[in-house]
Design a protein around this nucleic acid. Structure first.
Lengths: 344, 344
DNA sequence: CGAGCGCATGACAACGCTGTCATAGTCGGG
DNA sequence: CCCGACTATGACAGCGTTGTCATGCGCTCG
């Protein structure tokens, strides 16, 4: 039952050295005689000394907290991001503060600015679409708070970015679907302004061209990465399957949440997946294998992306040089039961 | 481009008052002449003064951070908890720190203890099953860190608790299923030690008894709240449906993740839900309506529970009295397409 | 043998805020 | 008109840590 944690002063007293020397030992600085260091170490052990973060922060003018700014309809994806960020941050003695942020909410904006001003955060990890909010990055830059952006639409900014190989991933999926004999494949787009949606579409189209196929505008459905939007797009599509003679035999949705929506629409309409319609997603979040049939999708190393972003941010903060400003991580295709050969 | 945020000292200088008075105004304390207050307020405005959290923490010996300790297989549920906690915490100028914790990981335990010792956290919100870890609560108590436990197994501890009405919710589901004419209903249990699992079973059985039905041990499948465990249980069940003459016509799973697993197993086995088998869950997480057919489930006000827990914790920290130590929030049945009348 | 250097160590002042207590000034009652 | 009570305000000392600079010691080199 130790009410108050012990302080550096107590450690110093016990070891018979000055506070500063104790501090030096606690922080593993050089320039300390081995014998003294040993004595101080012993004292630290005996007293269960743990440095007080608040004091350290104050003295350092740093908070050792990284903010993750998010506004995401895909909670599944965000989960993985958060897991990765927390793990990596911990490894470097930083903490992660999740910060919801709706670009159109003046209140959120104010709150975030407040947080920046308070110095509660040393750096920011911006998840899409927050990384493309110019006001946000400007606010951070103004206060000298470094940012790393995850899968941003524009890579022009000064901040490093980490993305998955959206283009390549989507191309792989396009090739795969084409290889199954599908000749007309619908595409469910994500937020129109978001690069990951654009790149995925581009990669997908590239693959189609390779097989002398193409994506006609009528087969592009506009979603916003949310399950609900996927469901809505899916319903439109099912209506067409029921009425039109020539129709897509497969759908590639820009993320798993929307693909799951399409799946529900198919079930609802009594359309069999994958027999009548193949459905594919992107991200490989938990949901992808929790729906039926489990989704063929592009595995994105989401947690790894977050770790990488966190690492870059920490490197910047610690003054280390961040080598390549734009990291792109590999994706892989995961074949599950939601896709099959075209039976047309 | 303002590199350094302004301090209380500058505000005080500008307003021609002492630092302390400026502090008083900034904190809205009484005992300040209206005219002085106005002058200081003006200075605060002009200088864009924002109090420095690190300093405030140090002076207060408080961190204004609440930790949420989790170890949960149901990420879906945790999402809601996190959302609620963050929102409520913000309203009281606290922050939320998510802290993963595996009871059997000595490292996690050490890290958490470390966090407690550092004083990085003023209070803890323990989500199941962490609220039932005696070592954990003891550690916190030792350092005088208040905890609130969410849906704990044991309510004996000194800490306030917040739970959903597991018993009532499950009873409602039991009644509902019985009212559909199901006479034999399987039950997929969650972690055996977790109260929410026990209570749900108890409530469910109570409802069965009301209808002169009962739950035979053979129809109880042991899961652990994860989708995978639900899938495994589901497969066992499907095997029985295929071979045994008399078999359950409905399943009630202890949470949605497991219910989704059962659903997948049914699809896999070609068993139609809800025609041949009705499936019901508990929690009403996003997943519940993202699978097909959308799950009939018990809506748990998860975010509200988190808000409530957060509020209680803040109240405790601010010295306010926490009225009822054990809050139980209402659940409601949400009827969706995964359940139907028994056709036996 | 003394000047000069490197190294271990400590005193002290921040960092920005809040709590405590003292100090003026104001007011009303006896 | 004086005294106690009460009010508005300020001086100052922390909170626990780190950065700066000074000190003192022993060593080497000329």
């Amino acid at each position: 039952m130790k009410a108050r944690p012990s302080t550096l002063r107590e450690v110093a007293a016990r070891a018979g050295v000055s506070i500063k020397t104790a501090s030096r030992v606690a922080n593993g600085e050089a320039r300390v005689a081995a014998s003294t260091a040993a004595r101080v170490q012993a004292a630290i052990q005996e007293l269960d000394y743990v440095p007080n973060m608040a004091a350290r922060r104050l003295a350092h003018c740093r908070s050792f907290v990284l903010g993750v700014v998010y506004h995401n309809r895909s909670w599944n994806w965000l989960n993985d991001i958060q897991r990765g960020a927390i793990e990596e941050a911990r490894a470097h003695d930083y903490e992660i503060l999740m910060h919801p942020f709706q670009p159109d909410s003046e209140q959120d904006r104010k709150l975030l600015r407040h947080i920046l001003e308070q110095g509660s955060v040393d750096g920011l990890i911006l998840t899409p679409p927050c990384g493309d909010d110019p006001e946000l990055t400007a606010d951070a830059a103004e206060r000298g708070i470094p940012c790393v952006r995850i899968s941003p639409t524009h890579r022009e900014g000064a901040e490093p970015t980490v993305s998955a190989s959206d283009f390549e991933g989507a191309r792989a999926m396009g090739r795969y679907l084409a290889s199954l004999g599908h000749e007309r494949i619908a595409f469910v787009a994500g937020g129109a302004e978001q690069r990951s949606s654009q790149d995925r579409r581009a990669g997908f189209e590239a693959a189609l061209h390779e097989s002398d196929l193409s994506l006609c505008e009528a087969d592009v459905l506009q979603g916003d990465f949310s399950f609900e939007s996927g469901l809505a797009c899916g319903r439109k599509l099912m209506a067409r399957l029921a009425t039109e003679r020539a129709h897509p035999t497969a759908v590639f949705a820009c993320n798993d949440d929307m693909a799951a929506g399409v799946l529900s629409a198919a079930h609802e309409a009594g359309i069999h997946v994958p027999h009548t319609l193949s459905v594919a997603g992107f991200d490989d979040v938990d949901l992808a294998h929790q729906v039926w049939p489990p989704l063929t999708t592009i595995h994105q190393p989401t947690a790894l992306i977050a770790r990488e972003a966190t690492r870059m941010l920490v490197d910047t903060l610690e003054g280390r040089v961040v080598a390549p400003a734009h990291r792109i991580l590999e994706t892989t295709l995961v074949e599950r039961a939601s896709t099959a050969e075209s039976c047309s």
